[in-house]
Design a protein around this nucleic acid. Structure first.
Lengths: 115, 115
DNA sequence: TCGCATCATCGTATATTTACGATGAACGAT
DNA sequence: ATCGTTCATCGTAAATATACGATGATGCGA
């Protein structure tokens, strides 16, 4: 009976999964792109650039804020959003490591029957 | 009224989001890792290595298969799983591009009030 | 002070995800 | 042919995610 089977997940696995979850919606993929393209911050213009209502965009921003990928800075009645560069760099590195390790496998792939 | 606001998402954005969704659970992050470590394929041993029931593991495998990150090869009564190396390499490249572009921003970050 | 614009939050409906036990299908071995 | 092993699928319950309109808070400018 091997290893008791009650192995929980590591912090690392949970972290990667959580970031992936934050990026698991096209709107949030796009928001990150838009925020970095405008290389300064941005505000409710996001609503104009997305096929979504204001309340929905706000929810997506909240999710990205939750994991720390973006920051919001209150600027008068507006809110200025931008990517969190430190976090982004950590995430970039972590995913690069993850994927590189996955690619390290000896490629003894099974027959691609894709059952 | 700018750009009609009905801009849909691009295939690229949808693709990245879909892969991210497939990786948005610690179990699936770990399954990918396990499959690549055993560099050959694997079967129901996964169930022993995860704190989940067999039916649940099967569901997670199905999700990874859905996006093409892994393959399954029927081998007698067992099923041999392995990572799909072509797909993995595409995904690795695409995410690298995505993150690199995000990092290209001119880093005019706003004050980190993180409202 | 009174609106106006901006953005968050609430309330809510619907859909999807996650998890598990139970059942079913496929196959090797006896 | 029957049995045991392996894995997928079904049925289902509970939790989460997605989306939107309506409402609330905040601060700027008139």
């Amino acid at each position: 009976m091997a290893t008791a089977k009650t192995q929980d997940f590591t912090d690392d696995e949970i972290f990667l999964a959580d970031i992936a979850k934050a990026l698991s919606h096209p709107a949030r993929i796009k928001i990150m792109k838009l925020l970095s393209e405008m290389n300064a911050c941005m505000c409710g213009e996001l609503v104009n650039l997305l096929p979504l209502a204001q309340a929905t965009v706000s929810q997506h921003l909240k999710e990205l804020k939750r994991v720390g990928l973006i920051q919001g800075d209150i600027d008068g009645p507006k809110v200025c959003y931008c990517v969190n560069v430190e976090m982004l760099s950590k995430v970039t590195k972590d995913f690069q490591n993850y994927f590189n390790n996955l690619n390290k496998g000896e490629k003894i792939s099974c027959k691609p029957k894709t059952k």
